[in-house]
Structures are given as C-alpha cells and as structure tokens.
Amino acid sequence: MALGYSMVYGVIKLINFAHGDIIMVGAYCTWYMMSRFGVPALFAALFSVFFCASLGVLIEKIAYKPLRKYGRLSLLVTAIGVSLFLQNVVQLIFKADPRMFTNFFKGAITIGGRQFSTATPATIIISVIIMTALTLLVKYTSMGRAMRAVSEDDETAQLMGVNVSSTISFTFAVGSGLAAIGSVFYCCSYSQIQPTMGSMLGLKAFVAAVLGGIGSIPGAMLGGLCIGVGESVTRGFVSSKMTDAVVFGVLIAVLLIKPSGILGRGSGEKV
C-alpha cells in the first residue's frame, strides 16, 4: 500500500490523502462483486484494481489537475476533501456498519509450530513481485524515465516531448491500482471492512512511505515491513493499545534522525 503512496508522491510531490480511501473503495468493490454477484475472488479483485485505477485517474483529472499550478498546499487540502468525499459516498451507498469479508485464501500452513493463514505468504510474495515489477518499470522503460523526468522537472520534460498530463494520469492509475491490490490483502487478513477504514490505513501507508524514504520504491516496502513488524511486536509484548503510539513514535524518531527516510536520497544538492 505504501508503494502506491510513494509512487504518486515521487512523481508529483503530492501527499495523496485520499489514497487510504481508495484502498477502502477497493475493498468495498471486491466485497460487493463477491457477495452480490458471486463473482470468483480473482475476478472480483481484478475488477477492483481496474475500478480503482480508473477512479484514481478520474480524481486526478477532476480534483487535482485544475489546481496543479496553484501550488502544493491547495492540492493537499483538496486531497483531504477527496478523502472525506469518498468516505461519505461509500457510507451513503453501503451504510456505516462494518461488513464481513470472507478470506478467500483457504487453509493455513504451519511453520515452526505456528499456524499462519496462507494469506500471509501470499501477501509477501505478491508484494515482492509488484515491487520488482515497479522498480523495473520506473528504471528501465521509457514511461518510467518519463515519470522520473516529470518528477524532477516537468517543464524540461515537456521540452523533451513528454506529455506531462498523461504521465501523471498513468502514475495515478498505477498508484490506485496498487491501492486496490493492497485492499484485497488487507481484507483477507482482517476480514472486516467499513467506510472509515481508509483514514488510518492511509495514514499508516503514509508513515511507511516516509519511513522508507518517500519516493523510493524499495524504501516504501521496507517502511511497510518495519511498521508491520513493529505493530506485531508491540501487540505481542507490550499492549495492543500501544501499537499506534509506537508506529507514530517511530515516525517521529526517523524524521528527527534522518528526515529523508531510511532509503531516501538526501535533499542536499550541488547547484
């Protein structure tokens, strides 16, 4: 989930507060397809990815694009607005009650005497695959180069013939599609969805992205892992009430010690 965040931020320097809510929409989308139409899990998930990618592009076109030249603060406020909007629309359609989500990774595996749901290894494997694919995309394809160029200097990128609008749309599509994938895994592990689930999730994904070094893909992955492990350890050894405090505590600590994140590149530049 942090991947999508980091990606969007990396290209347009926008902290997309609506990211968590896109995750939520993805979850509802998968749930609705499965429970109402009895669509097989895989297709429901794919549909949800497609739906969220389109939603991401739509949000970008309607809410962010007209404001792009007015600076980052207006975009930030708009992003919060979009986040509230999505939450309320979903509440309106599906009501505020939590819904049960059936884990479709059946069975469990036993490692070292402990039982895990198959969802856990599946999450890890698929995350690594996505991370690799993303890294390759950004590093070696011409679209990826264009994304990096736009992120560094959109004006010069235009002079090179890069269509900045479509590059940003593409980034939003990928970022939001990733949100949908994230939502599917989240739901399989936590089996409950509700319209406000996005805020906390989005915030945590954001923390993960910052922790790893915002804009860096492996960084986002690493940050996510740190937070996940940190949460579990706290829950196991200290108290489950402390988890959020620890997550944000870690964020504050990292920002104090290395503001650019674990794998972030320094902002000091030779001019």
């Binding site: 004006e155 235009q158 002079l159 090179m160 013939g161 890069v162 269509n163 900045v164």
Partner: peptide, 8 residues
Amino acid sequence: ADAYKLAG
C-alpha cells in the same frame, strides 16, 4: 500548440 508536441 502544446509544448510537448513541438519536440516531434
């Protein structure tokens, strides 16, 4: 014309 079209 859009800036990005001129390169072409």
